[in-house]
């Protein structure tokens, strides 16, 4: 087991290396590059030269990259140009908010997606299946930012129940306020993902229902409750784990839009700011952290999967 995890970790190294190199190449290979962002548009050649030297940008690109990599390996992602603070600190401030939202949205997605998927799979083609499938389509088709706007219009503008702008409050400090703040963004994000989950679960349940072992289970006199609840569910939930993991991973950086709608102080909005101010160290830092989290969640899912599925030999 430990060996399996270690091997997986080793495998991640090339992915992260290629990815960081890719980001680096894109950001630095472009005309203008970081210097243009640093000095502003009306800079004199002397200013440009000074800034270039100050940030070590006159060195060969490979040396710069290796230098960045060496420092990144020990947790130093540089200093934000715009905020003049270490990138690691800036990200550290936003990460808890992002994790709060990710967990809350996952809960909403599971609470909505699993029942919808299971109920519509039990009787494929029935009116209830068609109604629930239409619901999933709607959940997927409505853009999150528009759904967010509608929710704000209704719950904040009309009913004045919930705040239109969601701040970050740690749940262990003021649970109620935290929930009030998280509710709308979590629903916005969760509804969309519940559509994906419901669709996926329905499809895998329906295909499992046709499997031979289901006939065997019925032939030995098992009640339908056990046939579906144990035999089919165990098989259908295995791939479901992967999907849930992927969804959670995508919340880390992919919630940019939802965060923008609710002006929620997450990692995504930090990245938008970084991009709009051309704050290169911050852009790199955000993307690398998002990638690492994404990859870590995927690893956790792989390990969990191998643990749950007896067919996978992780020896």
């Amino acid at each position: 087991m430990i060996g399996f995890v270690l091997r997986r970790l080793v495998q991640l190294v090339p992915v992260l290396l290629i990815a960081s190199l890719g980001i680096w190449a894109i950001l630095y290979a472009v005309p203008g590059g970081p210097v243009a962002g640093l000095v502003g548009e009306n800079a004199t050649p002397e200013q440009i030269a000074a800034v270039t030297a100050q940030y070590g940008l006159d060195r060969p690109v490979v040396v710069q990259y290796l230098d960045w990599l060496r420092r990144a390996a020990v947790g130093d992602l540089g200093v934000s140009i715009y905020a003049s603070e270490p990138v690691v600190d800036l990200i550290g401030q936003r990460l808890p908010a992002t994790l709060h939202l990710a967990v809350a949205a996952t809960l909403v997605a599971l609470a909505l997606g699993i029942p919808v998927g299971v109920i519509s799979a039990i009787s494929p083609g029935s009116w209830i299946d068609r109604a629930l499938s239409a619901w999933s389509a709607l959940a997927l088709g409505v853009p999150t930012f528009w759904l967010g706007i509608l929710l704000i219009l209704w719950f904040a503008v009309d009913l004045r129940w919930l705040p239109a702008v969601s701040g970050y409050v740690p749940i262990w400090e003021e649970p109620l306020t935290a929930i009030r703040n998280l509710l709308l963004p979590a629903i916005t994000l969760g509804v969309y993902v519940s559509g994906i989950l419901a669709r996926f679960l329905r499809a895998s349940l329906v295909s499992e229902l046709r499997a031979d072992y289901v006939r065997t289970a019925r032939a030995k006199g098992l009640p339908e409750r056990q046939v579906v609840g144990i035999h089919i569910m165990r098989n259908a939930l295995l791939p479901f784990i992967t999907i849930v993991g992927l969804m959670m991973a995508s919340f880390i950086g992919g919630a940019v839009v939802t965060e923008a709608v609710f002006t929620y102080p997450g990692l995504g909005r930090l990245l938008i700011q970084a991009i709009s101010t051309r704050d290169y160290p911050l852009i790199q830092g955000c993307i690398v952290v998002i990638l690492i989290l994404y990859v870590a969640i995927n690893l956790a899912v792989d390990v969990l999967y191998a643990y749950v599925d007896p067919r996978i030999d992780y020896g």
Binding site: A19, I26, S250, G254, L271, I283, I287, I290
Partner: peptide, 15 residues
């Protein structure tokens, strides 16, 4: 591995 929206934003920031 990179959410599509982030990738697109980074690219547009460059282009």
């Amino acid at each position: 591995a990179l959410p599509a929206i982030l990738f697109a934003m980074a690219l547009i920031a460059v282009l």
